[in-house]
């Protein structure tokens, strides 16, 4: 009886330990016993923002909602918040698989960050069976259809800071970008722009923002001090017009 109780307790402990690792949360590739970083990417006022890009048109040109002015461009779904400049745990440099889910017609966020050398696991939680491919790196992902709840892993992403597009052959609007960073200290914003990183080693960090295929260069420098006792917070006001390394070139 005692042995049975011991075995059950051991199994439960094992599950409690392994489960967080297996369930790769998009906001946390963090070192153990690290600090927490919370922040938000704020959009400029609607009036100062560019209009949302024209994404397509059918028979009738899109029209503004008569009750309220439309939202402007919201680039946060294509952004990755990255911490740099702090003490990096060696474990957080090791390539680890990053899992992203397809929900419905696309990923929740179009950016799929991963530690360089790591693979991206894509799980289909939508109703369709997408056939993924990439224009940038054609062999990076299997092309066979992913059934519902199926998983496909990409090749190891070895090139740093290069956006690799992932598309669906049967869908026009399905697109996401895989980008490899040096370590696990990155996070993708929620739909309201909020960001949360956990397990960040204590130290001074610089908050940088990656937009689609390059770093945003016209943001004010944002430095945070991370400790295990208190969450470090930041607030980044996105400019009305973003400038990136790619656009600068």
């Amino acid at each position: 009886m005692i042995r049975r109780l011991f075995t059950s307790a051991l199994a439960l402990a094992l599950i409690l330990i392994v489960a967080p690792t297996a369930t790769l949360a998009p906001v946390a590739f963090a070192a153990e016993n690290g600090g927490t970083v919370e922040g938000v990417l704020e959009l400029p006022p609607v009036q100062s923002r560019k209009a949302a890009p024209k994404r397509g048109e059918a028979f009738v040109p899109r029209a503004k909602n008569p009750l309220r002015p439309p939202n402007g461009l919201d680039p946060r779904f294509e952004m990755v918040v990255v911490l740099e400049g702090g003490p990096v745990d060696d474990n957080d440099k090791k390539p680890q698989p990053a899992r992203y889910n397809i929900i419905g017609e696309n990923f929740p966020n179009q950016m799929l960050p991963v530690i360089v050398g790591g693979k991206v696991e894509i799980k289909n939680l939508g109703t369709r069976s997408p056939r993924l491919y990439s224009k940038t790196l054609p062999d990076v992902v299997p092309n066979d259809p992913i059934n519902r709840k199926g998983v496909r892993a990409t090749q190891a992403i070895t090139e740093l800071h290069k956006a690799i597009d992932i598309r669906d052959q049967d869908s026009v609007h399905f697109i996401a970008y895989i980008v490899a960073f040096e370590n696990a200290y990155f996070a993708i914003p929620d739909f309201d722009g909020s960001v949360k990183l956990e397990g960040i080693p204590s130290g001074e960090w610089t908050v940088k923002v990656w937009y689609r295929d390059a770093w945003v260069t016209n943001l004010p420098e944002t430095k945070i001090s991370v400790s295990s006792r208190k969450a470090a917070k930041f607030r980044i006001a996105l400019p009305a017009k973003l400038t990136t390394e790619a656009s600068a070139h």
């Binding site: 439309p70 402007g72 419905g104 017609e105």
Partner: peptide, 16 residues
């Protein structure tokens, strides 16, 4: 399930 991937849905959520 999310329909945000549709351009139409994105436009609608943006106010169009």
């Amino acid at each position: 399930d999310s329909m945000r991937g549709y351009e139409l849905v994105q436009d609608a959520l943006d106010g169009y």
